[in-house]
Amino acid sequence: MNQIIVGQFIALKRKEKNLTQGQLAEILNISNKAISKWETGKSMPDYSLINPLCEALDVTVSELLEGQASYNSMNEKLLIDLLRRIQQLENQKFMLYGIIMISMGVSMQALSHVTEPQFISGGMLLLSIVESLFGLGMIIKYLLK
């Protein structure tokens, strides 16, 4: 799946329907900047918008993801489920990164107590606090999604 090709396909189908980016955005209840990002290949639609987007453009999910009209009989529900799972995995990596950062922070804090000279120990303690807070922030970001 090539974001640029998919974006060009979205633009083509939107224009065939005589819709502006703003009109399509209004149909999907999103900003027209999101449509612009899709059409320029800077981002892809959220999986929750795939079905409404396909309905608005009168295309199938497989056509949208291929970036061209096709006669592929792939199961649309399976594609949606696959996209949802990919997005879940992308989100879960923030949780994993957060846990790793907190673990590094705890390890660094333990090392700071046995390290000499004192200014290095203090620097390690500060770094451990920063790492732990950063990890906590990543976990919170995951939980808020």
Score class of each variant (00 low, 15 high):
residue 4 I to C: 02
residue 5 I to K: 13
residue 6 V to M: 13
residue 6 V to H: 01
residue 10 I to N: 08
residue 11 A to P: 00
residue 12 L to V: 03
residue 13 K to I: 10
residue 14 R to T: 14
residue 15 K to A: 15
residue 15 K to E: 15
residue 16 E to M: 04
residue 16 E to F: 01
residue 17 K to I: 08
residue 20 T to W: 00
residue 20 T to E: 06
residue 23 Q to M: 10
residue 23 Q to T: 10
residue 23 Q to G: 06
residue 24 L to R: 04
residue 25 A to H: 01
residue 26 E to F: 01
residue 26 E to D: 14
residue 26 E to C: 08
residue 26 E to Q: 13
residue 27 I to F: 05
residue 28 L to N: 00
residue 29 N to P: 00
residue 29 N to E: 12
residue 33 K to V: 15
residue 35 I to F: 05
residue 36 S to L: 08
residue 37 K to L: 14
residue 38 W to I: 14
residue 38 W to G: 13
residue 38 W to Y: 15
residue 38 W to S: 14
residue 40 T to L: 10
residue 40 T to R: 07
residue 42 K to F: 06
residue 42 K to I: 09
residue 43 S to Q: 09
residue 43 S to E: 11
residue 43 S to F: 02
residue 44 M to N: 10
residue 44 M to C: 09
residue 44 M to Q: 10
residue 45 P to W: 03
residue 49 L to T: 14
residue 50 I to D: 11
residue 52 P to H: 02
residue 52 P to F: 02
residue 53 L to S: 10
residue 54 C to Q: 02
residue 55 E to C: 03
residue 57 L to M: 07
residue 57 L to G: 06
residue 58 D to H: 06
residue 61 V to R: 03
residue 62 S to Q: 09
residue 62 S to E: 14
residue 63 E to G: 01
residue 63 E to Q: 12
residue 63 E to C: 07
residue 64 L to M: 11
residue 65 L to S: 07
residue 66 E to Y: 08
residue 67 G to H: 03
residue 67 G to N: 05
residue 67 G to E: 07
residue 68 Q to T: 10
residue 68 Q to Y: 06
residue 69 A to D: 09
residue 69 A to W: 00
residue 70 S to I: 07
residue 73 S to A: 12
residue 74 M to S: 15
residue 74 M to Y: 08
residue 74 M to Q: 12
residue 74 M to F: 08
residue 75 N to G: 11
residue 75 N to W: 08
residue 77 K to R: 08
residue 78 L to C: 07
residue 78 L to F: 12
residue 80 I to M: 11
residue 81 D to C: 05
residue 82 L to K: 04
residue 83 L to P: 00
residue 83 L to Q: 10
residue 83 L to H: 03
residue 84 R to M: 13
residue 85 R to N: 12
residue 87 Q to F: 04
residue 87 Q to S: 14
residue 87 Q to V: 05
residue 89 L to N: 09
residue 91 N to M: 05
residue 92 Q to T: 06
residue 92 Q to W: 03
residue 93 K to E: 14
residue 94 F to E: 14
residue 94 F to A: 14
residue 94 F to P: 00
residue 94 F to M: 11
residue 96 L to R: 07
residue 96 L to I: 15
residue 98 G to Q: 06
residue 99 I to K: 02
residue 100 I to F: 09
residue 101 M to Y: 08
residue 101 M to N: 09
residue 101 M to C: 15
residue 102 I to L: 09
residue 103 S to T: 13
residue 103 S to V: 06
residue 106 V to E: 02
residue 107 S to V: 08
residue 107 S to F: 08
residue 109 Q to W: 03
residue 109 Q to L: 11
residue 110 A to H: 02
residue 111 L to E: 10
residue 111 L to K: 05
residue 112 S to I: 05
residue 113 H to V: 11
residue 113 H to A: 13
residue 114 V to I: 15
residue 114 V to R: 02
residue 114 V to K: 06
residue 114 V to L: 06
residue 115 T to K: 04
residue 116 E to N: 09
residue 117 P to T: 09
residue 118 Q to D: 11
residue 119 F to V: 14
residue 121 S to K: 01
residue 121 S to Q: 04
residue 121 S to P: 01
residue 122 G to S: 09
residue 125 L to E: 12
residue 128 S to L: 04
residue 129 I to E: 13
residue 129 I to F: 07
residue 130 V to C: 12
residue 133 L to T: 13
residue 134 F to R: 03
residue 134 F to Q: 07
residue 138 M to K: 10
residue 140 I to D: 10
residue 142 Y to D: 12
